[in-house]
Amino acid sequence: MDSNLDHIQLPELNLPHFEPQLQEKDGRMWVFDALRKKHLVLTPEEWVRQHWINFLITQLKFPKGLLALEKGLIYNSLVKRTDLVVWDKDGKPYLLIECKAPKVKLTQKTIEQACMYHKELKTPFLVISNGLQHICLSFNSFTEKFTQEKCFPEPPV
């Protein structure tokens, strides 16, 4: 990080450490998003999302081209945006990741919100994360039920 950014307190997350490109502009912190190839305002939620992107690509070996950010979908006639969707090689949604700020507790309400997005996309896997705690669920489309998993899903084949 740049030396002038040392005063910024960014929480250590329960995800592999990486050094995102940060810059200060107009009194705000910005982070470079390698997927969208542009700088975004660094919010606590964005800090978590950027760590997830890095983790998926560098550690879990998901192909970068299969990741999409803030995909729009309509739920109860409201336009909503998912945080991170991973597609399989056939172009079907595979993994939905809902990112929260580290201060946000993962409660039943948080899980229910992520499940609303899931109803539209019907991904086999759903992860809800505040960067410190992660809940990974697999979805059985026949029983329409979620099961909590101990491991993150492998990249789609």
Rank of each mutant, 00 (worst) to 15 (best):
N130M: 09
C151T: 15
F125C: 03
K37D: 15
I53H: 08
I97R: 01
T82L: 08
F62M: 07
V104N: 10
K92Q: 14
L42I: 14
Q9C: 05
I57D: 02
I111A: 01
F142A: 15
K145Q: 09
L22R: 10
S141L: 06
F18E: 13
E98K: 08
Q59N: 11
F142Y: 15
K119Y: 09
L137K: 00
G65M: 11
L66E: 04
T123G: 03
W52M: 05
P16V: 11
K71I: 09
K80N: 14
C99Y: 11
L73D: 10
G65P: 06
T110R: 04
N140Y: 03
N140M: 02
P155H: 09
K64Y: 14
A34T: 15
L60I: 01
F32Y: 15
K122S: 02
K89F: 13
W47E: 05
L69C: 10
K150I: 08
P156K: 05
K109P: 01
L69T: 05
K150M: 12
C115D: 01
K105C: 07
G91W: 10
L66F: 09
E112L: 06
K80T: 12
Q50K: 09
K92W: 08
Q9L: 11
W52A: 06
K119G: 06
V79A: 15
W87M: 10
C99G: 12
E112Y: 06
V86N: 07
K38G: 10
S141H: 11
I128Q: 03
C115K: 12
M29L: 14
H39R: 13
Q133H: 13
K150R: 12
K119H: 07
S138W: 06
R28T: 00
Q113V: 01
L96I: 10
V48D: 01
Y117V: 00
K92I: 07
V41F: 10
S129G: 00
T107A: 10
P153S: 11
L15E: 04
K109I: 03
V31S: 06
L56W: 00
V86P: 09
I135H: 04
F62W: 13
V31A: 09
K25Q: 08
I57K: 00
L137I: 02
C99E: 05
E12F: 05
T147F: 00
D26C: 02
D2L: 09
L15W: 07
V41I: 13
K100A: 05
V86W: 08
K37P: 12
H134A: 00
R81A: 06
K119V: 05
K109M: 07
S141A: 12
